[in-house]
Amino acid sequence: MNDLSDLLDRAAGQADAVHDTRPDVVRGRRALARTRLRRTALGAVGIAAVGVVGLAATGIGGRDRDAAPVATDPPTVETTSAPTTDPTPSPTPPPSANHVGIVTNTPPGWQVQGNDPSTLVMARPGDTSSRDDFGGKLVLMLTSNPPSGQKRVLDTGRVVWVDRSAQSGYSTVAVRTRQPAEPEGLLVLQFPTDAISEQQAISLVTDALVLRDAVPVEG
């Protein structure tokens, strides 16, 4: 006579040991990044539809990575045929052993609050809020989403996408990573619109280095 628990145990099959936890970790990181950005946008604009626009500007739309490959750019707005002057370049310090994901210069009056393989968060000195809270902060994030916003061509030939969402209080500047030196993806800086100038934002995002261990978030 078989005991039900024994039968169920047999039916469940044998489970092999897990040798690679990375796919689960990466999925978790991506979901967490989406959650953080969503919180920021909602905190900034309440439940206004402007928040949705802000999320779209950062490329956060919940799409499946495979369904929305990075290769295809969506229609964007060309603001001018003349090249935009590059901001004064300032060398990004070489990454140290402590660096993961993304490295860039920290603007005066800001400091790095935290970083992980997908995100670099900069906050005002003395800001004791959780690093999960992006409100009022500069957030550099590597994503696998297509760019959106106004397309501009810098003197160097590099293309940036600028989206200034005045009503939400947040803007974004995005640039493709340098291929093949950096992992493929779109580097997006989300910043409070009145916190830094557009030139500073472009400088931050174009000076940034995306390290080999960086992992793009999707959706």
Binding site: A12, A17, V18, V25, G28, R29, N115, D116
Partner: peptide, 22 residues
């Protein structure tokens, strides 16, 4: 810290994923 979260989570996955899958 993110690294702590990753490490702890990875340990959990290693230990519990097989049972969860069953």
């Amino acid at each position: 810290r993110s690294i702590d979260r990753d490490t702890e989570f990875a340990e959990f996955v290693t230990a519990q994923r097989p049972t969860l899958l069953r």
